[in-house]
Design a protein around this nucleic acid. Sequence first.
RNA 1: GGGGGUGUAGUUAAGUUGGUUAUAACGUCUGCCUGUCACGCAGAAGGCCGAGGGUUCAAGUCCCUUCGCUCCCGCCA
Length: 617
Amino acid sequence: MKELKELKGLIRDYTCGQLRSSNIGESVTLCGWVNKNRDLGGLHFVDIRDKYGLTQLSFANYKGDASVLKNASLESVIKVKGKVAARPAEALNSKMPTGEIEILVEEMEVLSKAKEPPFLPNAINQATEELKLKYRYLDLRNKYLQDIIALRSEVSLKVRNFLITHGFVEVETPILYKSTPEGARDYVVPSRVHPGRVYALPQSPQTLKQLLMIANTDKYFQLCRCFRDEDLRADRQPEFTQIDIEVSFLTQDYIKNLIEDMMKVLFKLPENFSMPIMDYKLAMKYFGSDKPDVRFPLPHVNVTDLFTSSAFTNLQEVASNTGGLIKAIFIPKSVGELSRKDTDALKDVVSPFGLNGVYFFKVSGGSGNNKQERSGGIAKFIDDNIYQQMCKRLMSAEEELQQYYLAYGLKKVSESEGQWFLVADKNADATHSAADVLRKFLAQKFSMIKDFYAFLWVNNFPLFEYDQKEGRFYAKHHPFTAPHHLDQEKFFSADHKQLSECRAEAYDLVCNGYELGGGSLRIFNQEMQERMFQILGLTEDQIKNQFGFFVEALQYGTPPHGGVALGLDRVLMLLCKSDNIRDVIAFPKTTSATDLMAQSPSAPSDNQIAELHFKWV
RNA sequence: GGGGGUGUAGUUAAGUUGGUUAUAACGUCUGCCUGUCACGCAGAAGGCCGAGGGUUCAAGUCCCUUCGCUCCCGCCA
């Protein structure tokens, strides 16, 4: 705004955050909302507000109609004309950027009288989420949200500039498209001219961007809206924006270099910053997650085998069960110590994953002449051998994670005193998830989370996930992902185990425990694509109906290609340090995917029902 | 689909073991006030206690059903 050269044609001369003592003496016109009325009897002050700030209006010299002032209720839009004046020395306000001056109002007009609003922007009483969403336009008057809206616009521009400088072309793809199976539930749009048929809103323009590569577009990008009809979370909305990218004739390195440079621009990272890469298996092994938060240490160590013959039946049963997993986390005493009460409360941290609690024991002494002691919790089931193994594993974990410790400035454990926490479940996935959440909880509790952006690539994902219930493979990423170049044999093998172990040419961009995006190299020949559909158990008819056009296109000369899609909303969440996606979207939906302001979705009119050939059940 | 939290003046909250007229702050209205800036002071109005049903002499409070918001699990290729 400072350097902005304003065009003629506005009814205001300055914004409400602009005037300084250098403007004293100027005759100005300001417009804005009434933020505050302070009537001292003989003196009257009004704070006028816009998105740029606040300016105090003084009515000491006001000779106009007093009833106009009376009408200036809070949140009314007013226009004032007056002289910029210095405040008396005793009335300077150093807390306000405009605190050295005030406007001596000569004329005032209430452009739009406001009735008492349901809540005030910037008020002492924060309105509930429900009310704020119903009156979103009032909440958006808040500077916090206005700044984010501006940031979002700035980030979009930077992304476009960056990509266009690198030779990319932005291409718009259809919003009314085709239902894609194998993914999330589609939002579906009925058609007036085609009774009984529907369009689907894209979950992502995946096939379209690949077709653009076949079509010789070479380097494509799009800031595109995507739609998924799934249940929501604090970081998930039914419609969201992706920075969608696809490139021909590339290796994984190109995408990594490109995104690394883009993140440097968006997050103002140092020029020499290099993003570490972590193998999926390593991420799961030590962090129990494919999107680990690596701002703090506390790796998990697998201790399952140490308890196969334990006298403690809870752990013994898990350890003996195929698929059972026990993981341990160590908190050094110098970092902090949980009280007995806190330890019991860990139950609530892991219970969402079906676990009954967290096992623990404490190690004290051991330095100098003090004999080391294990006490509390399950200490009596931890013999010297088990304990030494646990320590050894923690050390080798730190060894194996060394490059990440260096990259993020994490400290290795240098003491044996402290508390061990064990998480166990017959289902390994539950242990991984619970241990991940426990790790984050402990880091939070002991203020171990430093304020920086810990970027990370995770790669070598498995190509497939096996669904026990349905007895079939699903694509972990999507069915166009290329099998890892070292796992081609496994991909064409008929062996279940080989297929399970087949890795993908896929990678995720992770930051501070959020998945910012993911991508892959794609399959670019027809035989391989057909093999993929075959493994996924699609019939000839299904392939033809759902992907026929795409498989056909692959036959007419397809360049090797790949890409990535980043969640713009999550990028913004990280940039403005919000943990709620609603903050970065101008008109967000509730967790039940409704719009409280516009009351959508709403019932169709009788006319629409007839035209769209609906039959309500 | 499942679980946790929550719903009380316009708004945000308090409300004990079920017991008189349901509190407070901000906002609104009235009056006073010449340097306030979370202005101050005095007063007033303002309530379907989310909705429906039940228990009870008596329900904001206990029970059942239901709805909204929110967080999490499942889900999100």
